[in-house]
Design a protein around this nucleic acid. Structure first.
Lengths: 184, 184
DNA sequence: TTGATTACTTACTAGTAAGTTAGTAGTTTT
DNA sequence: AAAACTACTAACTTACTAGTAAGTAATCAA
């Protein structure tokens, strides 16, 4: 892994642990054992770091989608939810949960990336729910897009609230979410 | 309204617009037309501002709860959700949505306050849902506490996502949330 | 009337933030 | 072998951060 990728990975963890506005070039340069200017060489401005992190997340989600594409929709959704559960076990929230509260303080280029990432995720989830309902794998009322909003929102908040309200919070919300969707 | 209350109110809006780590004493002193030391006179450390904001939110929610106490539970829930809708119209997210992502960067005294605020809200919502279900006003499966987590999470995320995904997002999630709970 | 308290001000500090400039090894290209 | 490129470092700047110390005018209590 090259330096640029190492920085991106480290920044990703910092953003999802502390938030975009709470990490600095020092938090990147010190663990990497380089000078602050070395980070600026790869990423001239802080927004460039943020954009690289979001781009990486979009690419990785693309890969997951491909890997899951042959599974039935209920299992795809479970895989999707387990992605969040793995984050939870590492004490990390999701990128949207971290960046949405700071949205108005982000440079425009980052705002656009965050929006694109959200739309990308929602598009996939909407299609997954719609197809799954057609096959009788899911049971829910209303438009699939609206349900996708609620599903994504539950997983996002579950990561947030797990930190604040206690370590069983994610699991409780996860179980209830799936039981709601799968029940006849 | 005295200076201390004005500062608290301004800080509340800044936290819910930009996040706790993205606002400074300057953001308080400039609009108040006082020097930075004047803010420090009322709130020696930044955490003291944060704690005052959370305390105010807890007190105000207490007042709302009292005002709603004679309403049937479905109307109490609607009032609760409309509280979030008013925030949405002002472009503000809720305190939990703002502070939970930054939770690990907050001083311990603030972490405790955030947790207390969350538990307070969840306790009320759990009781509201439980009583409402007993009376046949709500229809949902599982424990009332778990359902309360999902309801709170939906409103919290609806405010976050409304910024990122477009201005109809809150309304869509609001409608779906209430329709899910109220449907027979 | 004196003394204390309240609500500030001016002026400052030490630390940190993102970002820049010029220079330099080591490698790659021509 | 010369030129160009890559990946840095050393040293710096400007701007802002939370926080402090000492002083002051106005009000309030004894």
């Amino acid at each position: 892994m090259n330096t640029r990728d190492k920085i991106t990975r480290l920044a990703d963890q910092l953003i999802r642990k502390q938030g975009y506005n709470a990490f600095s070039y020092k938090d990147l340069s010190e663990p990497m054992q380089v000078r602050n200017a070395a980070i600026h060489y790869h990423f001239p401005a802080k927004a460039d770091v943020g954009i690289a992190v979001i781009d990486k997340a979009i690419r990785e989600f693309d890969e997951y989608k491909q890997q899951w594409s042959d599974l039935p929709e209920n299992e795809q959704l479970e895989q999707f939810a387990q992605m969040y559960m793995r984050n939870c076990k590492q004490g990390l929230i999701c990128l949207m949960g971290s960046l949405a509260p700071d949205y108005l303080t982000l440079p425009e280029a980052m705002q656009m990336k965050v929006r694109a990432m959200g739309q990308d995720l929602l598009d996939w989830l909407t299609y997954c729910l719609e197809q799954g309902r057609k096959k009788g794998l899911f049971s829910f009322s209303g438009e699939a897009y609206d349900r996708a909003l609620l599903v994504a929102s539950t997983l996002l908040s579950a990561l947030l609230l797990n930190r604040v309200l206690g370590e069983d919070t994610f699991q409780r919300m996860y179980d209830q979410l799936l039981s709601d969707l799968l029940k006849k």
